[in-house]
């Protein structure tokens, strides 16, 4: 994967901001999904967010992309205060994400789904599009080329014109990752990108994620249940349990943390892989 070189991105600079999540609490009715959670994603790192089901990982993602309101605490991305940034404006700051349950348009082609990722990078509304403004068409073609490049990088080259709903679950996850990548993010958030994939596909995905980081120099915030994937590619790990941060450190520090062992072994819910990984 090469960085864009054709001037299609708004923010051409290679500056990657730090993501600060500070003392964030999110409540749904009586239930606290997150309680006083803090962590920092350092520029250019792969930062994993792990924890048992229901720990609040996806909620963290939704806080950062602005889909859930925050009851306490705040989130900053470099100099920008995300609390005062509308959800749709966060893309332009460089926050791109994929969803745990892929949020794609099933009847729409792969290419068209991924092109949505270029929305904030392009211009033109109903009249310009309807009148087929030459400028808009030229811009569109430029972005289409980049989108094809991204799809091929993710191994979707053969499916470009197929409706997403016809693809396997693993391929749909890849389309969702491609779409997030198409926003040219500085911070790429991936929620269980390897869910539903077999071992071979999972290791391909792991390789893709580290390629993305090393070639684009961006940060990756990763939620993943497959512990071998997490432990092999993450630089830093934050562990959540029942909405609280219980550990934060390098993979080797996490492996030996008593809280983590208790959370995973005691809860009985944790993936068996981690138990193997921990032993």
């Amino acid at each position: 994967m090469k960085p864009t070189s054709d001037g299609t991105t708004a923010a051409e600079s290679t500056y990657v901001p730090e993501l600060h999540v500070r003392n964030v609490t999110v409540r749904f009715g009586g239930l606290a999904a997150l309680t006083d959670v803090s962590f920092t994603v350092k520029p250019g790192t792969i930062h994993a967010l792990i924890g048992p089901n229901g720990a609040g990982k996806s909620t963290c993602f939704n806080v950062v992309s602005g889909l859930y309101p925050v009851d306490e605490g705040d989130v900053r991305f470099g100099p920008s205060d995300l609390m005062s940034t509308a959800p749709h404006q966060r893309v332009s700051l460089g926050i791109g994400r994929a969803f745990q349950n892929t949020a794609l348009s099933g009847h729409v082609t792969v290419l068209d789904n991924v092109m949505l990722g270029r929305h904030a990078l392009t211009r033109g509304g109903f009249l310009l599009a309807g009148l087929r403004s030459p400028r808009m068409r030229k811009e569109q073609q430029l972005h289409l080329d980049r989108v094809v490049e991204i799809c091929e990088f993710l191994g979707l080259g053969d499916h470009l014109q197929r409706p997403v709903g016809q693809l396997s679950y693993g391929d749909q996850k890849r389309v969702d990752v491609a779409r997030a990548l198409a926003t040219e993010p500085k911070l790429l958030m991936l929620d269980e990108p390897a869910a539903g994939m077999n071992d071979a596909e999972t290791s391909v995905m792991a390789q893709l994620i580290s390629d993305i980081r090393s070639s684009l120099g961006i940060s990756v915030l990763l939620v993943e249940h497959d512990m071998s994937l997490v432990m092999s590619i993450a630089d830093h790990v934050t562990v959540l349990d029942f909405g609280r941060g219980i550990a934060d450190g390098t993979p080797s520090q996490i492996r030996t943390s008593p809280e983590v062992i208790r959370a995973y072994l005691g809860g009985g819910e944790g993936p068996a892989v981690l138990q193997e990984e921990l032993s």
Binding site: H88, R90, H119, A129, Q140
Partner: peptide, 26 residues
């Protein structure tokens, strides 16, 4: 013309999943 390019794409995204449309900058 509109349906086949940017405005149509954003409309369909809003129709199918408003939250993910917003996360994509719509």
């Amino acid at each position: 013309g509109a349906v086949r390019s940017r405005p149509g794409r954003s409309w369909r995204a809003v129709r199918d999943n408003p939250a993910s449309a917003a996360a994509m900058g719509v």
